[in-house]
Design a protein around this nucleic acid. Structure first.
Lengths: 178, 178
DNA sequence: ATCCAATATTTGGAAGTTAAAATAGTTTCC
DNA sequence: GGAAACTATTTTAACTTCCAAATATTGGAT
């Protein structure tokens, strides 16, 4: 079992002990006052990449991408299983066109239905079907079992991440201070 | 100045005080032992989305996407300004096909050159041009000025994020414990 | 010398993203 | 009652990413 440098996208092995620490060092030489920000941003990007690839690997056997899973879960979590397209975009923080796209694919698979709202005919209502509910439940169980790709991480460490990143969301104005 | 719910993709305003806290509550009801992991992962995804959109806004006037910037910066940071395509993929942690793609675009704009390696004819060497170097320098200055999208965040908070996320990278096996 | 397994890159295709324009329906306000 | 302004969704087009398959090239084993 050699320590080869393997495939390198999803689950990867860099050729430097810690590429981010290395970049931080490089930055410190020329722009010391910005090195911490650079490293934080790079860390977020890299963590997202790692987590996304693990999560999509868990979801793949169920035929879902992360985007599709999020949409399905959102619907499954509402009492009626129905939500206007626009509302979904807001909740998921994605572009309306992305909602159209994802829901379109889910619809073709019979996991959600689509119908114009009786109240406002501009509005299109997406509704999760029983099959969609089953799949959402199934996929959620799989993700939980897999600890969302970070099962090995103690819960306290996970909570620290949430807390540390709340500062970003506040700083960017998504959240009120709190 | 009303508190309207605005555009909602790039820089967004959710319709709940803190959507992640809300999701954590929901999760706690049914899967309490996984709620922290779910929240951490969701936080990373959301932070990445927010930061990426701010960073791309800074880079846009310079005609670069974040991916293009990273590739250019990587080349600019090597002494010779030259790297094999494969090596770039490893360093940037992206799929080889993505490297082909990005370098192709940079090449068309005269920011990098491409040439087969004299040593190994399977290998293609990408080299940054003087114009590429200038642009990289310029874009880096812009990013620094913008504090990488989190100028408002104190450096200590930024460092906390890097530290907290190092745990993820370790847990996933990208990094040795340290 | 040759064959075969590994390596490096590119191509083609599915998915996702965004911005901008098109379409349709609703509301507001004279 | 009708024009103008606004809102919701979809379409289109341009990018980006990844995967899987194809194409070259190399290097080691026979």
């Amino acid at each position: 079992m050699r320590d080869q440098v393997k495939t390198a996208y999803g689950g990867a092995v860099p050729d430097t002990p810690d590429p981010i620490a290395e970049a931080h060092r490089q930055w410190s030489v020329r722009w010391p006052e910005h090195a911490d920000h650079m490293a934080a941003v790079t860390s977020v990007m890299r963590a997202q990449q790692l987590l996304l690839s693990r999560i999509e690997a868990v979801l793949k056997p169920h035929g879902l991408t992360f985007a599709a899973y999020e949409a399905l879960r959102l619907l499954a979590f509402t009492r009626t299983g129905t939500l206007p397209m626009g509302k979904m975009g807001t909740r998921l923080m994605v572009h309306p066109a992305s909602v159209t796209n994802v829901i379109g694919r889910l619809e073709r698979r019979g996991l959600v239905g689509r119908a114009p709202s009786p109240d406002d005919r501009r509005v299109v209502l997406a509704t999760i079907t029983p099959a969609g509910r089953d799949l959402a439940e199934e996929a959620t169980a799989a993700l939980n079992e897999a600890g969302f790709g970070i099962a090995a991480l103690p819960a306290e460490r996970a909570a620290e991440i949430t807390a540390a990143l709340r500062a970003v969301r506040v700083s960017v104005g998504e959240l009120a201070e709190g």
